[in-house]
Design a binder for these strands. Structure first.
Length: 845
RNA sequence: GCCCCUGUGGCGGAAUGGUAGACGCGGCAGACUCAAAAUCUGUUGUUGGCGACAACGUGCUGGUUCAAGUCCGGCCAGGGGCACCA
């Protein structure tokens, strides 16, 4: 029999599935539904290994559920707006629309080569006017429902390019193209009121029991609910200043008050003080990224003002403007207690402010306890705090709150770290914000929907092309008919991806969503994507779904019932003798060393890292599919490495997968003694019974493993079954047929093309995609006896074979009679013998 | 800086608190072959021993337990996110 020809075979089965329209999902069915979705790709132009891994996993689940009798929705689309198209336009002079759609066409072809079980009739791109027009309707609905508002916000401003920069375009505080020092600049922009759902988004996390614990934890911390106290300082000029603290207990350890550089009071003061103004400008040069702000050296500016301690009219605290105080959190002003907050401590040491410990550990002496370079944030008793001395932290918090509330200057509040979602982008390749600015009427929702992007985007100017397109920009007011201009900003692309999963349920409807389709398909039963989306995309989608619920478009709050976050695909890195990165395809390996192909020039092998263009450690999926076929690359992605962890691509591993493809093909086509299809199995004995047991154990294990997305374990079980079949020469034809058919159906979701060919070769006229997943016979998966370990003091000394109904005492006697046990005991009587039925015996000597 | 995760043979990894290393890759030995490839069989944590076997072994360190890769505390290293990359 010839070797398995993946290339021809895969095309043949893909054509057959398409011809039969196997993967179309009807919007009504008697079957239970399953919505399986992978995060849709950005159309960069080529699929990469990360896509292959993601879509293979989703495809396995989709095919598995389908084989289990579900009506499966498994769609594909394109997250098609974004910066890269604009960059391509500026760098290569291409039209972003043409560039994007050409990329989509290329990537669609590549995805189809993978043999994915996708309902392609539901495909759309977020840059299709058909999609973003619906999104504009939703934006206006959110606006009318009070979930969208306009406010000032900071952006990164490149003073040379006269352009707003994304955080990734700010490199060490400078614009990536101009190299100019970046400034923060205030613009009037649109926000989604995600904070209206802070508490709801937090509580909802508890219901997501099929989400990874770590993602729920990250979201919880991101929302950042904290109970604290807002209270007011009186400044020396009688002005009031409100601060927020989660540690009111440390009020007697206060040594300064600090304002954010963006605080209104700072702005007022800097108008009169050029030095303060310069300091604020310096702070603003850090950009808007929180990481940069937090990592910057703690700096402050003494305003000369003082604040009066709320419990002591004679106690004056200096008021600073400090670069680490964020305007977006709390009130944008704090009191600093250096002994019990690391940032405050760093600040106090720099400016020689006092450090008074007011919470000391239970076992420490309040008189001698001192704080060095590390703030003390643990529990303890209050000290140096007058009426609070001796109290524990929680009681002291309550006491301070009660007293300040009684004085009428404080209020217990719940504060969230979560900020409202800024969605305005000064970018041309996005969904236009459907708003009009009228000189008379102010901001008015557009009525001439959809507001389409101009046919031609011109990139010869600085800034946003939409802002420089007079024909597109100028319009009339929908209210008064007077002169007006369009909002020239576009929506954050996270808006596009916040509801696409719902649109897939009826992707070509004339309204944004069809309630019946959403009610049938939502929530997404299994969502799969990268861990890098653990917070933003998933949180925004959860918010958007709540908004859609409020507006009556959907009947639920949580869009994704099950979430799985996959690891990245990594590869070794190579550098030539000049220290430049070298592509894997330019390398050949000999004796564990790497050489530039066809030469004796050695290259250095670097660490394995996430595949990226910048490090040139990429392997193109299409070349692998070309050599080995889609089934091999799919099998690789599922084998060995747990799906949530990073996987390393290796040539050896790929070859191993290819050999397994061939091995299955040989098992099926070269096996002798296979009973004809449909043969009944009766009274299997000996080798036949052993094979049947192996078969049914494999079915049970693979079923469990696939349901739990433990693909690597399912793969191992399938190898075991293949080994068992290969070794079962003495089994009869009926048992061999049963085992081979099970093997083929078990690999069906993972290597669908090979499975179809093998199924056909076994004499079937049907397709594997139309065949139910095999079911394990419980009578064959249970065993009557078990080998258990015998330990002495926790150390293994032998094993015994026991039957299920054996008494604990009998097991104990067997264990104590073991050579290994008697040798170690040396005739002594054990102090204790622990018998865990079916597991272990531990003799404590 | 803050939040979260990961760490087990030469490599990827397996292991409801209960026989550490299933399964795969690689290596070694053998079979087939004129030879090679492919394939098949055996073997493969480290150290000592002819051997039965023994000791050690899951990043480091301390603890809980009859029993710890697994639970708890403290470290170290690598990775993801930090609100305008998607």
């Amino acid at each position: 029999m010839a070797r398995y020809n993946a290339k021809e075979t895969e095309q043949r089965w893909q054509a057959e599935w398409t011809r039969r329209n196997c993967f179309a999902a009807p919007n009504t069915s008697d079957k239970p539904k399953a919505y399986v979705l992978e995060m849709f790709p950005y159309p960069s132009g080529k699929i990469h290994m990360g896509h292959v891994r993601n879509y293979t996993m989703g495809d396995v689940i989709a095919r598995f559920r389908r084989a289990q009798g579900f009506n499966v929705l498994h769609p594909m689309g394109w997250d098609a707006f974004g910066l890269p198209a604009e960059n391509a336009a500026r760098e290569k002079g291409v039209d972003p629309r043409e560039w994007t759609y050409a990329n989509i066409a290329a990537m669609r072809d590549q995805l189809k080569m993978m043999g994915l079980a996708i309902d392609w009739s539901r495909e759309f791109a977020t840059c299709d006017p058909e999609y973003y027009a619906q999104q504009q309707k939703l934006f206006i609905e959110f606006y009318n429902a009070g979930l969208v508002y306009r406010s000032e916000a900071d952006v990164n401003w490149d003073p040379v390019d006269q352009t707003v920069l994304a955080n990734e375009q700010v490199i060490e505080g400078r614009g990536w193209r101009s190299g100019a020092l970046v400034e923060r600049r205030k613009l009037s922009q649109w926000f989604f009121k995600i904070t209206a759902f802070s508490d709801d988004l937090l509580k909802g996390l508890d219901t997501l029991d099929r989400w990874p614990e770590k993602v729920r934890l990250m979201q919880k911390n991101w929302i950042g609910r904290s109970e604290g106290l807002r209270f007011t300082f009186t400044l020396i000029d009688a002005r009031k200043l409100e601060v927020f603290t989660t540690r009111p207990d440390t009020l007697f350890g206060a040594s300064f008050v600090a304002l954010s550089p963006d605080h209104p009071l700072t702005e007022e003061l800097s108008a009169r003080d050029p030095k303060l103004k310069a300091f604020v400008e310096e702070c603003r040069r850090v950009g808007t990224a929180e990481e940069a702000i937090e990592k910057a050296e703690k700096k402050g500016f003494d305003t000369g003002l003082t604040a009066t301690h709320p419990f002591d009219a004679n106690w004056k605290l200096p008021v600073y403007v400090a670069n680490f105080v964020l305007m977006g959190y709390g009130t944008g002003a704090i009191f600093g207690c250096p002994a019990h907050d690391q940032r405050d401590l760093d600040f106090a040491r720099k400016y020689n402010l006092s450090v008074t410990p007011v919470v000391v550990p239970e076992d420490a002496d309040p008189k001698t306890f001192a704080v060095g370079d590390e703030a003390y944030t643990g529990p303890g008793k209050l000290a140096n705090s007058r009426f609070l001395d001796g109290l524990d932290v929680e009681s002291a918090k309550r006491e301070v709150a009660t007293r300040l509330e009684a004085q009428g200057i404080g209020e217990r509040t719940v504060n969230y770290r979560l900020r409202d979602w800024l969605v305005s982008r000064q970018r041309p390749w996005g969904c236009p914000i459907p708003m009009v600015h009228c000189e008379k009427c102010g901001v008015v929702p557009a009525t001439d929907l959809p507001v389409k992007l101009p046919e031609k985007l011109v990139f010869d100017t600085r800034g946003n092309p939409l802002d420089h397109d007079p024909v597109w920009k100028h319009t009339t007011c929908p209210k008064c008919g007077g002169k007006a201009v369009r909002d020239t900003d576009t929506l954050d692309t996270f808006v596009d991806s916040s509801w696409y999963f719902a649109r897939f349920t009826d992707p070509h409807a004339s309204e944004p969503l069809t309630r019946a389709a959403c009610d049938y398909w939502l929530p997404v039963d299994q969502y799969i994507g990268g861990i890098e989306h653990a917070i933003l995309h998933l949180l925004y989608s959860r918010f958007f779904t709540r908004g859609l619920h409020k507006l009556g478009h959907v009947g639920l709050d949580e869009p994704f019932a099950g979430l799985f976050t996959q690891g990245m695909v990594c590869h070794e890195t190579y550098k030539n003798q000049n220290g430049e990165w070298v592509l894997p395809e330019e390398i050949e390996k000999r004796d564990g060393k790497a050489f530039l192909k066809g030469t004796n020039v050695e290259a250095t092998i670097g660490s394995s890292e996430k595949m990226s263009k910048s490090k040139k450690n990429v392997i193109a999926p299409e070349t692998i599919i070309d050599v080995y076929g889609a089934d091999t690359i799919r099998w690789f992605m599922l084998s060995d490495t747990p799906p949530e962890r990073d996987i390393e691509w290796t040539e050896e591993g790929a070859e191993g997968c290819w050999r397994f493809v061939q091995r299955i093909w040989r098992l099926v086509t070269e096996s002798e003694n296979i009973a004809p299809p449909g043969t009944k199995i009766e009274n299997a004995q000996g080798a036949s019974l052993d094979l049947r047991r192996a078969t049914h154990r494999a079915i049970a294990a693979v079923t469990d493993d696939l349901a739990a997305l433990r693909f690597n374990r399912a793969v191992a079980r399938i190898y075991e079954l293949a080994n068992a079949i290969g070794a079962a020469d003495k089994a009869d034809g009926a048992a061999r047929r049963e085992a081979l058919e099970a093997l083929v159906l078990l690999i069906g979701p993972m290597m669908p093309h090979l499975a179809e060919s093998a199924w056909e070769s076994l004499g079937h006229k049907t397709l594997v995609v139309d065949t139910p997943f095999p079911k394990a016979d419980a009578a064959l998966t249970e065993s009557t006896s078990v080998t258990i370990a015998v330990q002495v003091n926790g150390k293994l000394r032998g094993t015994i074979e026991v039957t299920k109904d054996m008494s604990e005492d009998a097991i104990k006697q067997m264990a104590l009679a073991l050579d290994g046990v008697t040798r170690v005991l040396e005739g002594k009587t054990p102090r204790r013998v622990i018998v865990v039925p079916g597991r272990i015996v531990n003799v404590v000597a």
